[in-house]
């Protein structure tokens, strides 16, 4: 009975937060303008890579490295969207709207609420990823074909990846709860570091060996690699020794570890924030 009530409360928190997130995300403009704003930035980011290749690489975008780089960059759109999106909710609700304290006084599951708020950004990211991949396939000859896509691997990697990124977001949200004024940089710094360390836009072996080692310790590296294999049929040579199943195993295993770490860290940060009166902190930054 109690577990039923808790499930109901969790689902309601998630649903309402997702709707609220979508309204905040999109209702400042009409749908057409919103679509343009959402698409232009990531597409421009992808085109920067295209021109860097066009200027230098032998064969330009026909270089054998390009498809893996393009797909890696496209899929990475999810990372800042989900990860920074969830942690940003803490800043937005606490500092901008002054609503975080009310979330805590309402019968709301905070985790469901935070993940729900991230859903809107993930939905927009999904559209952007699809448009970016279509651009690559149609205009840049990135070899993605419907017949060649490994459906189960795409679904498995996407679902487990979104759970993993949400947990990263909650971990970061915990850090954000107990910090002031550094908030704006933290999400971007983490996303930027992951972009560099996870070999998203170059083979991991290009990094100095110690940095490459750090990259191999981050589950997002394996997630990007799994999606490359699922969409292109081949990944990068750095992970030739790992089967598709092994890649998924690494993602699922690290997600399980991350779940404990993220929930534990968030609860700890929450207790600290309550004790120090940080839940309604207004730094005016």
């Amino acid at each position: 009975m109690q577990s039923d009530r808790r499930m109901h409360e969790t689902w309601r928190s998630f649903r309402v937060a997702a709707w609220l997130g979508w309204q905040i995300e999109s209702n400042w403009a009409d749908p057409f303008v919103f679509a343009i704003y959402s698409l232009v930035k990531p597409l421009a980011g992808a085109l920067i890579l295209v021109f860097m290749y066009a200027v230098i690489a032998k064969g330009g975008v026909d270089s054998p490295l390009f498809p893996a780089v393009f797909v890696g960059n496209a899929m990475f759109i999810y990372v800042p969207a989900v990860l920074a999106g969830i942690s940003w909710t803490i800043i937005d609700d606490r500092e901008h709207y002054g609503m975080l304290k009310y979330v805590y006084t309402a019968p709301v599951s905070v985790f469901a609420y935070l993940i729900g708020r991230g859903v809107a950004k993930a939905a927009v990211a999904t559209v952007v990823v699809v448009v970016t991949l279509l651009l690559g396939t149609v205009a840049l000859r990135v070899p993605i074909t419907l017949a060649g896509i490994n459906g189960p691997l795409v679904v498995g990697a996407l679902v487990s990846g979104c759970v993993m990124l949400s947990l990263f977001g909650i971990l970061l949200g915990g850090v954000t709860l107990v910090t002031a004024r550094h908030n704006y940089g933290v999400g971007e710094a983490v996303a930027g570091s992951l972009y560099l360390l996870c070999g998203v836009v170059f083979p991991l072996d290009t990094l100095p060996s110690w940095l490459g080692g750090v990259g191999r310790g981050i589950p997002i590296t394996y997630w990007v690699e799994a999606l490359r294999r699922a969409l292109l049929g081949a990944g990068t040579p750095a992970f030739d020794g790992l089967s598709d199943g092994a890649l998924l195993g690494v993602i699922l295993g690290s997600t399980a570890v991350l779940a404990g770490l993220a929930v534990g860290t968030f609860r700890l940060a929450e207790r600290r924030a309550r004790a120090r009166g940080l839940l309604d902190m207004q730094t005016m930054y």
């Binding site: 230098i56 710094a189 570091s193 170059f202 290009t206």
Partner: peptide
Amino acid sequence: FLPLLQVTAYVFIYRAIQA
């Protein structure tokens, strides 16, 4: 740090394609 991260990522792209 943030612009340096971006710079570093792009430097490694150029290194990967032997610019």
